[in-house]
Design a protein around this nucleic acid. Structure first.
Lengths: 198, 198
DNA sequence: TCCGATTATAAACAAATGTTTTTATTATTA
DNA sequence: TAATAATAAAAACATTTGTTTATAATCGGA
């Protein structure tokens, strides 16, 4: 990312801070006043520079449409309550609220994420405890060793996935549990993160 | 929270969605157009209602200053790199970037949070694996059974805390590790959440 | 010393935007 | 049936706001 001049950085920092504090963008004149600048044109030029350099976004002629380009997106992920086979599992209405999740490095299609509260101790050796929240990316294929969410007997379950001899093995990560062998598995998605609150 | 009428909810949902998609608030006329309403006054009344009922915030006479009242705050938490005893541990400069964290239910003083990348397997029985990120709330006291971050030999370590017979026991959650007994412990904070990325 | 980058100003215009006032329809409820 | 809540409109007004144009001071490096 192209370097900012000292003054550009000052102005960028102000915009960012305002955005965080108020929840919306300062206007050109707000910036002018705060930075002790005499003319709106000066500010306007800075804004164009910051946009050109990739630090800001704005929509032309729209008031207060500035926003810092954020490289770590924040997703508001619906927590799915009960999962039932036939029904529209991912209907927006049938959720238990939301969790906020921001990944490291990668990006997701916002609508392809959902979350699940884990019940039971079948994955404790993988560090997924009862009550943990897993963030899941919807997909219908998986590779060996990936932790997935699958639909078993009308219930969503978290297991490690293996394809063997044309069949599937869903492996709990807990010696007290037995693996599930099946010819057919309906994969809801891959676990991309897990969160625990103390 | 006071109930919304059907139409109020439609309008609130539109504002929320716009906010998420564009990063800034729609104007009164944006809403008017999108909702198929003939007059800005109608929209204006709805906005006032939504503010009165506590669903929206706005600043008087400021364009595009609407924002949904968000009850789950999002914290941008600095990831502390190396921790050294005497030095200003929490200096902003010395960090490994940020993680975004939003708690369930409770609120924190934003400046009292920091994050740590866990190294080693000493807490695996508590579901904290090598590479996990723990979110820590700064504090200098703890109660028995709480998972804390303490300073041992100039290094930050995550352990379960116990005070016994006027001494302290820092308990690893892994049978291969021995507890640390000490007369004096410098507590950096309590673990309030842990996050793992796959 | 000249040049370019950085920082800055004044003045005006056009458009977008929030706000007020006054009035009306419809459906529900007492 | 009368009262009330929910929904809606028109028209104007006052500000706020983005944008353009033309001009200038300062400073470091070639």
């Amino acid at each position: 990312m192209e370097q900012l001049t000292p003054r550009e950085k000052e102005i960028f920092d102000y915009i960012t801070r305002q955005f965080e504090e108020t929840g919306y963008s300062p206007s050109v004149r707000d910036i002018r006043a705060a930075m002790g600048i005499g003319s709106t044109a000066t500010v306007y030029n800075y804004i164009e520079k910051l946009c050109d350099k990739g630090y800001l976004r704005k929509d032309a002629s729209k008031s207060r449409s500035l926003r810092p380009v954020d490289d770590t997106p924040v997703y508001r992920v619906p927590v799915i309550g009960k999962v039932t086979a036939g029904s529209p599992i991912f209907a927006y209405e049938d959720n238990d609220g939301f969790v906020t999740f921001s990944p490291e490095g990668r990006r997701f299609n916002s609508s392809s994420l959902f979350a699940l509260k884990v019940r039971g101790r079948s994955m404790i050796n993988a560090g997924i405890l009862d009550g943990d929240t897993v963030i899941v990316e919807r997909c219908d294929v998986a590779y060996n060793g990936e932790i997935i969410v699958a639909l078993i007997d009308d219930e969503a379950t978290v297991k490690t996935f293996y394809a063997e001899d044309g069949k599937f093995r869903l492996q709990p990560e807990n010696d007290e549990y037995e693996p599930i062998f099946t010819d057919h598995v309906r994969i809801l998605g891959k676990v991309v993160a897990s969160i625990r609150y103390y």
